[in-house]
Amino acid sequence: MADARTRRVKKEIQDIQNDRQAGLTIELVNDSIFHLIGSFPGPPGTCYEGGKFDVDIVVPETYPFVALKMKFLSKVYHPNISSASGAICLDILKDNWSPILTLKSTLISLQSLLCTPEPNDPQDAEVAKHYLTSKSSFEETARYWTETYARPQTNEGRGAPSGTSKTSHLPTVRDEVAMAGLERAHVEQFEALGFERGRVIEVLKRINYRGANVPKISEDTVVEELLK
């Protein structure tokens, strides 16, 4: 009966390939239909618009009775997606999985997850804090990540942090600061006190030095954190 799974997965792959309209793509990894890379376009009208998001998909042995294993290969700035590992917090990939879901409908659910972040059930706590403190600043950062990491043309270097592999895009001060969703002026303020820029960014990110939080956190507190 193991071929029921093979038959179904083949049909599901075909289903994606036949439907050009949804804009989804699916490729096999090492010629296996049980390890795939799916992709979808960032939803229009969101800070992910214009991006192409790649997702690593493993079809478990007891599929479709257990959930597909999915994680983002493209780096995404989103409260429910780990900015480091691409791990996803979505109910249908855990205890709300149902065999009526397919490769196609699950990829579409990920696409709609990008439209509807759930910051109160986060996968990435730092990103969620950013989202809750200042939505406009969060969106600016997410847009920046989309432009940097989810460009449709650049297939090579997928998932790898930009900068190191792409010599034409050497990181600048603006890059790192924007990537962390911080204000350049804040970073420079503490750099001027003699702290190394990377350390300043790390600490300001961790304590969520953004928006309405800034007046609540004294300079001394920040310095204490920097000295830890």
């Binding site: 479709p64 009526i100 879901l101």
Partner: peptide, 10 residues
Amino acid sequence: GFEPIVYEDF
């Protein structure tokens, strides 16, 4: 709205 692909085997 269930698609045959998801229930025909069952």
